[in-house]
Design a protein around this nucleic acid. Structure first.
Lengths: 146, 146
DNA sequence: GTAACTGCAAAATATTTGCATCCTT
DNA sequence: AAGGATGCAAATATTTTGCAGTTAC
């Protein structure tokens, strides 16, 4: 007699994908795991040349877009051209991102972090303007580099 | 006897270029004038297909980069891929941008504005982090569209 | 089995570089 | 006249699209 196991292993990655009605595929699992394995944000290039893995460029584009659409990850605005993605930890849903935390770009190690504990401040806009979303990106030196 | 005139006409565009030790060329004047002529931000594409003008693509790239380097314009961080530029109205200098205003992206007309009167709020960072610059981008509906 | 996902090829876009020519100072 | 700026050609890089084969459910 062998030990009973549930037939669905509740890996975090799997459940995240299932929760969003996405097929659980090897590629998606690996890419999502990359986000979970580190605290920062990842660019398309980071993922494509990820250690040991060899992801097809197109699959990475499509996977990232799918994750953004589903509210699993979000893009981070940066003054330079680069597009970076980070896990959504707030209550994002399909078509609606609600990231109320700020983003921090370290000028030393060049990593990007979501500071989940720092809430975006209220902005007092001039008459006539109304805000849907406020994005804050702070540049400076991160905890690891200071 | 004729009225005395200075031999350097103080056109805004000319003086801006001279102040930054740049040769005053037709292309630079026209591109800089585009920024002065409207309140929003411009993308590379906006400039290239600017009404009536036909700018060489490469010249636009080089001119924008030159202006950024000199602190005449600055890039605006956006969550989507697009790169947009706006005039620096603060005290920017070569190699150091100091834009303390916020940026506003209208979800209706899709224009980007610098709200010069809205100062970026102070952000209280967690211990260990230090800030060099704070970028705020607000998305919503602008005055003209509301 | 069927719909969804992936990988390859290739198209479409965007950006950079080299160099000869032209313009500003 | 000399150095910088421009325009063209072409090299690179980035992103999108189509389609046939594969995989998840």
């Amino acid at each position: 007699m062998h030990k009973q196991t549930t037939h669905h292993h509740i890996h975090t990655v799997d459940s995240l994908l299932k929760k969003n009605q996405l097929s659980v595929t090897a590629g998606r699992k690996k890419i999502l795991q990359l986000f979970l394995d580190q605290p920062g944000a990842l660019s398309h290039g980071d993922i494509e040349k990820s250690a040991g893995e060899k992801f097809d460029r197109v699959t990475v584009y499509r996977t990232l877009q799918t994750f953004v659409d589903k509210g699993i990850i979000h893009t981070i605005p940066t003054a330079d051209n680069s597009v970076r993605y980070a896990l959504c930890k707030d209550d994002c849903s399909e078509g609606h991102h609600h990231d109320h935390h700020i983003h921090f770009v370290c000028n030393h190690c060049h990593q990007t972090f979501c500071l989940d504990d720092v809430v975006t401040p209220a902005i007092k806009l001039p008459r006539g303007y109304s805000a849907d979303q406020v994005e804050v990106v702070v540049e400076g030196i991160c905890r690891n580099c200071s």
